[in-house]
Amino acid sequence: MRSHEKWVQGILFILATTAVLTVLAITFFIFSEGLPIMVDRGVTGFIGSTRWEPLSGSFGILGMIIGTIQITLGAIALGVPVGLACAVYLAEIADRRLEKILRPGIELLAGIPSVVYGFFGLSVVVPFLREHFPGNGFSILAGSIILAIMILPTVVNISENSIRSVPGDYRSASLALGASHWQTILRVILPAARSGIAASVILGMGRAIGETMAVIMVTGNVTKVAGSIFDPARTLTGNIAIEMGYAAGEHREALFATGVILFLIIMVLNFSTTRFSRKAGDVK
């Protein structure tokens, strides 16, 4: 090998490892800032407590964990059925002309900045909820609705891909037995695509959990645990973004600790996605 090729190889190697190194650096940074206070307060004082009162030194994030779960589950419950229906329609039913209109529409959703979603939520969803439901509109439901829209591209694209990659043989076999198109979709194609669909749901979940700006703008952000979907709630991401600007000392550490929890949740989700996609095709 000529010497300049070795140079090129070396440079490419460094560039390639940059991404990994960055992740490692971020991980190290978050954990080193956040771990001390987690250790200090222990499980009960930090994860197990719903009292978040930085001024009096209470940093319980259970409320935010619950808030995040509530809002995310709501987003999944609203977004996945719509996204899946859309994926089935695109992959199985829509003709090319309709597909040409629908697909760019969905891709456009992915490109809209999250603050715009938040603004839409603030000026349309929140007032609507305030008018028709109990509460002042800033609520778990508002957050779930906005996030449901935001995770649509993820759910639609990945589900559609997995539906399209179901072998045509299965479709022919089913139709040749006298199944209707709809029976074939429901009983053969969707079950065969289910690992990909599950992966799309998990990735959507990851997106929903990580989303910050749009959520802050519509959920009200109180640290009290919500009793109904019309009550306000605060998410883990929201907690960090709202308070980072003025936090110092232990308070600041507690926000990093919030980041640690967020980090762990996302890690678990990511690992389960790879597990699901590895299992793809291996259906019972």
Partner: peptide, 15 residues
């Protein structure tokens, strides 16, 4: 199609 069944070239059992 129920009355006229078909067996394909490549075996295609459902998963």
């Amino acid at each position: 199609r129920k009355k006229v069944g078909m067996v394909f070239q490549k075996p295609n059992p459902f998963p």
